[in-house]
Structure formats: C-alpha cells, structure tokens
Design a protein around this nucleic acid. Structure first.
Lengths: 251, 251
DNA sequence: CGTCATGTTGATTGAGCTCAATCCATGTGG
DNA sequence: CCACATGGATTGAGCTCAATCAACATGACG
C-alpha cells in the first residue's frame, strides 16, 4: 500500500501565459480542439471562447486542483497527462483516473472539488473561470449538450471501473488497464501496441486498487509469458493482444 | 463470491399504465416531483411532460433494463428501490448502485446501456422514450442544465465509490455503506437511525466488492460492539453514529 | 559519487474468500 | 395445522491471493 505523508501539497505555482495569439487564432489552432468539448463551438465564435480562457503550463508533479476546495476553475487538457486522485485521512490514496489531450476536468458537485489533479508530464491546460464557463454554457446550447454527453460517458466509464475494482483479480485488472491504455493511445492517433505510460507503478497500483509490488509482479509475469515486453518500466509493448484480452476476461 | 448462473434473465413483463390522470394532474401530483429532475420544468408546462411519459409498474426482481442493449428508454423512479448491476462472463456480479425515489436512470454512452437495472421492491417508474426525451431536453434548457448537474454529481459519487472499492477495508466499507444509507433515508424525509434495507446481503456484497459471508460477519461484529442493532437482516438501527463514522474513516 | 526516487524480487503474513453446516423465516401443499 | 421445501442469513474452519516487510537493483540528478 502506497501512502502519502500528510501535508504534502505541491505548490500551485503555475506559469500562466496570456494572450499568446489573440482570439480566433489561439482556439482555432488549438491542438486539442478536434478532441475536446470546444469543438461544439462554431469557428466564427472562437474569439469569444478564447476570451473566456487562459492557457496554463505545468511541470510534472504540480497539483493544480485540490479535493475539497471550492471549484474556481475548470480545465481542458491541451497537451500532456494528468492524474486525478483522492487521499484518505491516513494517507491511503486512490487514483481515480488518468486524463490526456482533450479531456475535461470539472465535473463534481458545485460546492467542492471531488478529487485532486496532478500533472504527470509537462501539461498545457486551457483554464476556464467557473463563472465565465457557466455563461458559455448558457450562451452555447451545443456546448452544454456536448458536456452532458461527456459527463454521461464518464458515468459509464466510472461504472466500468467500479466493476474492475470490486470484482476482478490482479491479473485481470492489469490486463484491462493495458488494453484500455492501448485504446486511448489509438484514439489519439498513436500506436495501439507500443505504449508510453506517463504514470508510475505506484499510480497504477492506486488506480487498480493494488500495491506497487503486485503491479510489478503482474507486469513481470505477463512479460515472462510473452504477452507484453518492455525495456524500461514506462514503455510497454503489447505482444499478444488476444492473450491479454483473454486474461482480462478471466481466462 | 456470489455468482449468477448464465442465462437468468428476468421476464420484461411490466404492467404498464397509461393516462391515469391526464396531463398536468399526473405530473403535478407526482410524489417524486419534488426530488426529481422534472421539477426543472415549470408548472404550466407539465402537460407536455406528461405526454412524453408512461408510468410503469414492476414487481421485485423484474429486470427492466439490460446491459449492452440499445437504450430505448430512460426512467425516473416514482417510488420503490432499484439496483444497477453488471455481470461478468463467468457470472461474477458488480452492483453499481441502489436508486430510489427521484433518481434518474439513463446516463451512459448513447449506443449501449452501461448496466442492467432490477426492481428490489415494487417500483413505479416514469418512462421516457429516448427520442421524446431528447426533444424535451432541447425544448427545456433548464431540464438539460438540471440533468448535467445530476450527471456531474453522479460522476463525483462514482469517484467516491471507486475509492471505497480500491482502498477501504471490509469494516470501513460496511460502515460507510450504512452511513450513506442513513443519509439517503434522511434526505427523503425518513429516519436517519432506523434503516430499511431493500437489498439482500448478496446485493450489498456485490456493491461493496465483498462476499456475502464477509458482509454478514461485519454486520454481526458491528452489532456485538453495539454500533448497530437489528432484529431482521433488512431493518437496521444505527446505535452509535460517531462510532460508525470513526470506523468508516479507518478508526 | 552519493542520494533519492522508482522498480523488482523474495519471504512471510493476514484479511477476506471458499467450502460447508446450520439456522431461520416464509410460503406451499397435503 | 403441520411437514417440508426454499431462499436468505449466519457461523465455523481452512485456504489463498494479494498485502506486508525487507532487501536489493537501477537510473536520474545535483
């Protein structure tokens, strides 16, 4: 079990860039536009969108959203990877999910942020002030519809993960994790075979409800069986997709 | 571990009542209106709402929504209790949640129902055809906003549950479950001390990622310690709330 | 080069699972 | 009204998968 010493709060010292590329240009040229909720907003209204946002840059390890705090900002990920997590009073940690390009950060009750968010890599975020975001939602029904669809997806994904946490064995969990990663990679135009894992074994363990040691053991076991391969812990190759699928389904 | 013999699909033979109380009356007098998403729709437009809905009655055990199927209908619970669940190929089951009066059933990807739904008690449902519901959303922005808020809540609740499943001990899980039940009961105007549990130990186990036996053991352990009491398995009294809270937090 | 974070591997332990017996409430048919 | 089947719940005994404890390897970095 990984535990976090209480009182380890990363500095919220994010470098902020403003107004690089005014209005339409910035949002129009945004690398995440194609896969983010922003594409619910028409080309000719992008300048209004740009005016409501600030681009933020983060280094690995920076925590930019704290569980329990009042949700001042909402975010879209422009580039890089992020993890969401919750801490228990005694330091136990649960990683709720890993997010990347195009993903939206901001669901939850209106009064308190449901979980903390930390940059895994260098990250560029598109930041919305809460009030301004609400106005955007009211102005652009398409955006709201889009967001509802995304939230609805998120609910389903959460249910899937609950099933994993409640009922799968360690091997099944890791196999599913790798397959899900492969799918995510593919969705963003990357390889579905060679995976770059931006998170540590500890993050994976806290995500899968296991310990670091167990995750490590399952990885080596899968490697010995020839289902995966890797030179470094962070870059894995899926050698036998059907085999992984079989394991992920309890084979 | 509870498993379900493959091929056990309950008959979808729901008694359907139509047009009892026309238009405004039915929705206006609905017992669930105060706590459901429908209250986002103004009094004077309730007849349109009523026209889009059908009231359905179910007996305990009836499955009215199947994981993987195309989502033809969405529901609001008027009365009674429902469980959502997922089955694995080998019969393992994960209970995703328990729903009651006012709760909405219908989030998920647009192509496939994320989990099955079964009546725990006698249940009255307000059923929306998918197409008609979409029209309602487009017609009443307030309804859409409301639904987004509910979905957003659901995301947060799901994250909470993932933390429970991934990182809590059996005792902590059961304690949290009981406290959550108490809160839910109170929210609907019931007692926060005397709980009626509409679900079996098996349901609770599949919800908490435990086995029936473990759930049973924790219940008796909590009773021996004087934290709870019960005559029948289904009706529990919380004797020592602070004690339960302490346990739920790892005390 | 030493330090620190991360990852791997081994040995042992233990919380929760499995298997099995029993209990108990409810319903059913003779 | 009783016998008995049935489905849920409880309890005990033993086992197992993953956790814990511990040692060591590796690699990045000042």
């Amino acid at each position: 079990m990984t535990t976090v010493p209480p009182g380890t709060k990363a500095e919220p010292c994010a470098r902020i860039e403003r107004g690089q590329g005014c209005g339409v240009e910035r949002c129009g040229l945004c690398e995440a536009r194609a896969v983010s909720i922003c594409n619910a907003i028409e080309e000719d209204q992008l300048s209004e969108l740009a005016r409501a946002t600030t681009v933020v840059e983060l280094a690995p390890g920076e925590v930019f959203r704290n569980e329990g705090a009042s949700p001042e900002y909402l975010f879209n990920i422009i580039s890089g990877s992020v993890k969401l997590f919750k801490l228990l009073a005694d330091g136990r940690r649960a990683v709720i999910g890993f997010l990347t390009v195009g993903d939206f950060i901001g669901f939850g009750r209106p009064d308190a942020v449901p979980c903390s968010a930390e940059a895994l890599t260098n990250v560029r975020l598109c930041r919305f002030e809460r009030g301004k975001f609400r106005v955007l939602l009211e102005t652009y029904p398409k955006l709201e519809r889009r967001l509802l669809a995304v939230a609805s997806d998120e609910v389903a994904a959460g249910q899937e993960h609950m099933t994993l946490l409640g009922r799968l064995t360690a091997d099944e969990r890791v196999a599913r994790f790798l397959l899900a990663r492969a799918e995510a990679s593919q969705r963003l135009g990357g390889s579905s075979k060679d995976l770059e894992l931006p998170m540590t074994r500890s993050d994976i363990a806290d995500y899968l409800g296991l310990t670091i040691e167990t995750v490590s053991r399952v990885f080596t076991r899968l490697r010995r069986k020839g289902l995966i391969d890797y030179k470094t812990a962070r870059s894995v190759t899926l050698q036998d997709r059907p085999g992984l699928l079989a394991i992920s389904e309890g084979g």
